[in-house]
Design a protein around this nucleic acid. Sequence first.
DNA 1: TCAATTAGTCAGAAAAACATGACTATTAAA
DNA 2: TTTAATAGTCATGTTTTTCTGACTAATTGA
Lengths: 107, 107
Amino acid sequence: MEFKTANTDGCPAEHLLKTLSGKWKPQIFRIAQEGPIRFNLLLRQIEGSNKQSISVALRELEEQELLEKVIIKQKPLHIEYNLSEKGKSLIPIFRQLEFLSHEQGLN
Amino acid sequence: MEFKTANTDGCPAEHLLKTLSGKWKPQIFRIAQEGPIRFNLLLRQIEGSNKQSISVALRELEEQELLEKVIIKQKPLHIEYNLSEKGKSLIPIFRQLEFLSHEQGLN
DNA sequence: TCAATTAGTCAGAAAAACATGACTATTAAA
DNA sequence: TTTAATAGTCATGTTTTTCTGACTAATTGA
């Protein structure tokens, strides 16, 4: 392992792009816009995914402070992840990406 | 090799994000906003890059129709790549990514 | 008590991405 | 004529990412 942080000098957009485009992150982000998300639910909702990747994605999104982990200490004690304020601030750009993707047929 | 095209169904933003975040693509895109770009110039301009990766990035950006390859058949015959209309349509979102990256300290 | 669910971790394998060095073909300058 | 530049390709190897299956530990329902 060399450096965890690549040189994104001279290109401020690069880091943010990487942040958002990690494996399953766009899907998770999209689902999180609709409400709190949970590990096992994502695993079922996102077909083709696997626990390891979901786990990594959630951890990284949390580290990046786009998601907040909440331990619900009620009856059947479980864990939720919610979009943070920082996370919410990305909704418009995410919407725009979806819009462009449609409009321009960038697929 | 299985499938070149991953399933980005159910997440329109995903494809666009991948498109923009491939190796060296943000840098290339940024430089291309300033004018025509060329293979060997990129190679020197982007430190840490290598011919193979630049080659792949240019080819893919061309396939995605964000760049247009132009063969300049003049005196010292060479090749240029220009942002296409589709490519130009992404400038605003790219700017916004740069802006957010600064504003929100998303690094 | 036994099985299931939740939310993961860990080691190892497989696949994909990336880098390196050698090579090509054309043109131009020294 | 030899050297350098342009714009790459190709084979190979290394590194990184992703997937798989086994496992854990707490709680719950039958």
